[in-house]
Design a protein around this nucleic acid. Structure first.
Lengths: 331, 331
DNA sequence: ACGTTTTCGGAAACCGTTTTCTACATCGTA
DNA sequence: TACGATGTAGAAAACGGTTTCCGAAAACGT
């Protein structure tokens, strides 16, 4: 393994100088920089990220925390996108990204979680898919021991940024589109919502309700708890008499659509997320597509910003309204 | 952050002694062990894995390399399972697991990849989903600089173990089952295979061919390249006259089934993998279920074994024949 | 009781960086 | 000419563990 010392020797400078060059310190002359870089090139030197992480209290590593329902197909896809996005951005910034799963911390107190993270030299974390029921993890965010970026939670402070689409607006948009494009009467909408302890659920419901006030249609909200099964049951029971079924997630939209098909009625259904599975769900359904990969990438960049000492903020990312067809997901 | 020195002071011993206790060295008396452990408990000490990784050339970290077609739904699910399994096992062994994706190494020569891994103090790697086209990564395995565990490739040497199901046998089993359960004539089978540069494809084809010799049926093998689309096209063209369609992957089985449905013919179709998506694909299909989570877990344990100095071997893991129904995947 | 082996614990070097602090030029200015 | 600024480079102390090596004490054999 070629170390910083080898480079120093080769370039005829001190190790500290090499380190300064690597980390772009200002106090090095152009001349020395050139000589050091040359040596780095020649020796194919790549700085050891573990040593760097150990020695500097500044930099450190970033953890990506996920895993709500590790078992559903939808969340597999979404988590994978978050992680891949973050890992990619981390790689570009010469920063270690380590994925962790909520389930690892089951039953731990927040202090223990903090210790565990510290023990891995983690200075910054990204949390995706957290809901309020996970007390310890919520506290983890609140205690602000780490520079943290939360996805889809309304938290913002010195050390915490949040990122995500504008769920209320997106819900409004997709619902308006579905109503507009639907030629029928469309004055009664069944909205099947996600779990109640979740911020995105609240926002999406708010969006639907605001639109209902704006353009005036009958809105029935029922709790589908992000469950495809529950959405299916709700639809079987109450879906027939409605004109449109709007769901707080794609998985629920699929469940609803299956139910309608079974009942042999064909109301428009819209979902939320833009997962690939939608392409397999039979009929063409519209949904809000979030770019999870992009969110992961952006979240990691925000970690870097926070570690750089800047303070937390709120980041809205774009979304799009799409109709997912089987042909689009076929590969 | 509480360090090993704090523990040493508290227990009234030297830091080296604490280290020995942590790492279960034999040369410490029961008495001292107890005292040290007590101190560890009291201080909630968790050893810093980064420091450990840096200082010991023995242990080090493990990378999980994946990402064939990061975009398909099937591989998202499979990769996620591998990674979650490995991360879990890594956690239990106090070992850092870092996920990496093939795409990061695109265009690099094997030496550079090695440097990059070294720079992360990676001593051992798990590679999932590699095919022969990826020259640099194949070389990486062959050069044996790292203790490596390959999933689904027939490599075995001092520093390389392989793990996976017996693909030939599994293909035989599922095909036999499909033929047996099918009441029709069943003397002509269309086998849609995976990509040709892949070991699993070869094995699965071999299994199908051996069975064909054994019990005597007409077998047509066509290359579906693991593509749902291609499988669909092949089925549209040649599927009608066959009695059974067997596919080298679930995704292709889904494509084939869609094609049959479109043609309004209903032959039995069997796949391979056991992905959740199968539950959404309409008809009940049979397939070979592999436990990817388990494989990831097992692979990581094998890394530990290799790092412990033992030599490479071949591990067969169990599989099961299942019929995936929508009800089973509904959550 | 004495030499020999074994057991056990500690001191110190090391892993590969970062960072602080010092030192030395060089420069402009009073 | 002397002075403080400024710019640049290096020595050395961290960071938090692991590991080697050595010595003291205990156990053993005779």
């Amino acid at each position: 393994m070629v170390t910083i010392r080898d480079v120093a020797k080769r370039a005829g400078v001190a190790v500290s100088t090499v380190s300064k060059v690597i980390n772009r310190y200002p106090s090095v002359s152009e001349d020395t920089i050139a000589r050091v870089n040359e040596a780095i090139e020649e020796l194919h030197f790549i700085p050891n990220s573990v040593a760097a992480s150990l020695s500097s209290k500044q930099s450190g590593r970033v953890a990506v925390l996920t895993d709500p329902d590790g078992q559903t197909l939808a969340s597999s896809e979404i988590m994978m996108q978050y992680i891949m996005g973050a890992v990619k951005a981390g790689n570009e910034a010469r920063l270690d990204v380590v994925p962790l799963f909520f389930s690892m911390f089951a039953g731990m107190k927040v202090e223990e979680i903090e210790h565990r993270l510290e023990a891995q030299n983690i200075r910054s974390i990204i949390i995706c898919g957290l809901d309020r029921d996970m007390k310890a993890l919520t506290q983890l965010v609140e205690r602000e021991k780490f520079k943290t970026v939360v996805v889809d939670m309304p938290m913002e402070s010195e050390n915490v940024s949040n990122i995500g689409v504008d769920h209320a607006q997106a819900q409004k948009d997709i619902l308006r589109k579905t109503i507009t494009e639907n030629t029928g009467p469309s004055n009664s909408v069944l909205y099947i919502s996600g779990r109640t302890n979740s911020y995105v659920t609240e926002e999406r419901i708010r969006g639907a309700m605001e639109l209902s006030e704006e353009i005036g249609f009958e809105l029935t909200v029922m709790n589908g708890a992000f469950s495809e099964k529950t959405a299916r049951e709700i639809t079987l029971k109450y879906g027939r008499d409605k004109d449109i079924i709007a769901c707080g997630s794609d998985l629920m939209a699929i469940g609803a659509m299956k139910a309608l098909t079974d009942m042999n009625v064909f109301h428009p259904v819209c979902g939320f997320d833009g997962i690939t599975l939608m392409g397999y769900a039979g009929k063409n359904m519209t949904t809000v597509r979030q770019d999870f990969y992009d969110i992961g990438e952006e979240a990691l960049r925000e970690c870097i910003r926070l570690m750089g000492g800047e303070s937390g903020r709120s980041i809205r990312v774009p979304y799009s309204l799409v109709q997912v067809r089987y042909e689009d997901v076929l590969t």
